[in-house]
Simulated assay, not measured.
Amino acid sequence: MPAQISLEALKVLDAIDRHGSFAAAAEALYRVPSAITYTVQRLEEEHDIKVFEKQGRRMVLTPVGRMLLQHGRQILEATESLAEMAQRMAHGWEAQLTIAINGIFPIELIFPLLRRFQKVQPDIHLALRYETLAGTWDCLHEGRADLVIGAPGLPPQGRSYDTLPLPLMPEGAFCYVAAPDHPVCALEQPVKRDVLRRFTSVVIPDSSKRLPALTYGLVESQSRLFVPDMDAKLKAHLAGLGIGYLPRFRAAPYLASGELREIAVELVRTDHSHYIAWHSSNRGRALQWFVEALREHNPYAELLAESLR
C-alpha cells in the first residue's frame, strides 16, 4: 500500500505555487529553505513521482505536480472547513440547520431572514424543505428538521416541543377551484358531494412517514391526481386536470384574471391552528437565532393576518 500524502506536503506545494519559489515558500511558512526542499524530495521519493522540474532558472510543477496541487487544495480547504465547523459547534453553533415549511405557504417569505442570518454565520449550512399536513410534525418528531413553520394542529405525543402560534386561518381562507373550461363549472352550485366524485381531485399527499396522515377536502372514491407541491397543484388546476382546494392567497390572482373559477361545493373544510415548532431540548444557537427572529418579524403570521382583514 503506497504511503499517504501528508497535509504538510500539500501545504508546501501550495506555498511554493502561491509565492513563486522554494525560498519564498519557506519564508511564508516560517521554515528554512532546506526544510521545504526536503519535504518535496521526500514526497517524490516515497511515491516515485516527479513533482517539480527545472525550466531555465525556475522550478515549475509537472503535470503530476499540478494534479496533486489541484486536488490537494480541495483537501486543505476541507480540513480548514472541518476545523472551523468543530470550533463553531464547540461554541454552540450547529453545522447545519434544517427548516421545514408547510407547503401551503410560499417558501420565499423566509428568504429575508436567511439573508440576515448569512451575515451572522455565513458558513453554517441551511436546508429548506417543504412538508405537507402531518408531515410537518413528523419531520420534526423524527429529527429530519430542526424547525418547522406551519405545523397544523397539536404536536404528537412522546416529545417535548416549544411553539409559536400562527394566526387562525379565517373562514374562506381556502377556496375550491377549477379551470373555467372544466365541466364542473357548468353544473348547478353548490355542487353536491356525490357529483364531485365524478371528477379528479388534485392532491398533495401528506408527507408523514410515521405519524397518522391527514386529509382535507376529499370525497370518498374520488379519483386523485397526486402532485409534489403547491406550485404543481396550482399549475394542474390551471391546466384543467382536476378540482380541489387552494389557499385563497395563492389562488387570488388567478381568480381575478379569470384563469380559475371558484366553485361552491357541499363540503366542510375544517382547518387546524398552525404553529412554528422546535424541540424543547434543542439549544443550538442557529435555531435560537431563527426563533428570536421569527418572534420579532414573522412573515407567515403577517400573511395570515392579512387574510383576516
Score class of each variant (00 low, 15 high):
296 E>Y: 08
15 A>P: 04
268 V>G: 11
256 A>R: 12
24 A>R: 08
110 I>H: 01
206 D>Y: 03
262 E>N: 06
301 A>D: 02
187 L>P: 01
66 R>Q: 15
113 L>G: 03
3 A>W: 00
291 V>Y: 04
273 S>Q: 13
59 M>T: 01
295 R>H: 13
95 A>I: 00
43 L>Y: 10
24 A>M: 08
189 Q>I: 11
285 R>S: 09
220 E>V: 11
289 W>Y: 11
55 Q>S: 11
195 V>Y: 01
34 S>N: 12
18 R>C: 14
71 H>A: 10
100 A>N: 02
292 E>W: 02
72 G>H: 01
228 P>D: 07
277 A>E: 02
304 L>Q: 02
174 F>E: 12
119 K>F: 09
155 P>F: 03
39 T>L: 08
30 Y>P: 05
90 A>I: 06
5 I>C: 11
299 P>R: 05
142 E>I: 09
148 V>N: 04
268 V>K: 15
62 T>I: 07
85 M>D: 08
132 T>P: 06
279 H>K: 07
233 K>R: 15
4 Q>D: 14
207 S>H: 06
222 Q>I: 06
203 V>H: 07
277 A>D: 00
219 V>E: 14
279 H>I: 04
259 E>M: 15
37 T>K: 05
188 E>R: 14
239 A>K: 10
59 M>I: 04
224 R>P: 08
117 F>H: 03
130 Y>W: 14
280 S>G: 04
251 A>H: 03
21 S>H: 10
77 E>N: 03
285 R>E: 12
106 P>V: 00
29 L>K: 06
11 K>M: 10
36 I>N: 00
197 R>I: 04
14 D>Y: 08
105 F>H: 08
278 W>D: 07
168 L>C: 09
256 A>I: 11
176 Y>R: 01
66 R>S: 12
66 R>H: 04
267 L>Y: 10
84 E>I: 10
112 P>N: 06
140 L>T: 12
